[in-house]
Amino acid sequence: MRVGVLDAQGDVYENLRAVRSALKPAGKKADVVRVSGAAVKDVDALVIPGGESTAMGRLCSGDGSLDLIRSRIESGMPVLGVCAGLVLLSKGVTDSTAGSTGQPLVGALDVDIVRNAFGRQSQSFEAAISMEEIGIKRYNGVFIRAPYVSRTGDGVKGIASLGGRVVAVKKGAILGTAFHPELSGDHSLHAHFLGLL
């Protein structure tokens, strides 16, 4: 089994490490590898890391991987989108100050996103969140210029919220978080993701 971390831009290495650390608690064996371009076809699950969603979107539309990821997700491949990764998975994006962004997206998850929703970097924060739905009671959420989910479509479940805002979603084998599980040192969310395989 191969788990890929999309290697366009962002904290790829940190996600590789987190997935590798989660293999044992999840009781799974897998090769965890960087993937980009056409190689996204050859993985059994994909993590889209944190980073800048505009930069990642432009690179992945340039090499064709945006379309490949969409068709793999439509045929059931589990995917975890972290922050910028969640933005890329969504169908519609606005920025909290600049408005509609018109940026390239995978668009496989029927949610709308507001980017930089909690403010600029001065407002980035850590806060305890709960994801009871997937059996994680307490989790240190690291929110960096974070987005939130402003609309969840049919079948999409909000699994974490903060101040009434949805910050993590799940639909089948699609998981998205506005925060950074790869930075928290807690691998329970990555272990849950591996459990979807």
Binding site: Q9, Y13, E126
Partner: peptide, 21 residues
């Protein structure tokens, strides 16, 4: 009461998001 801003994790973490860029 329920959050922290300006921690090393949040400040260094932001730089990590720029990697490969």
């Amino acid at each position: 009461a329920d959050s922290v801003r300006g921690s090393a994790l949040v400040k260094r973490g932001m730089a990590h998001m720029l990697k490969g860029g």
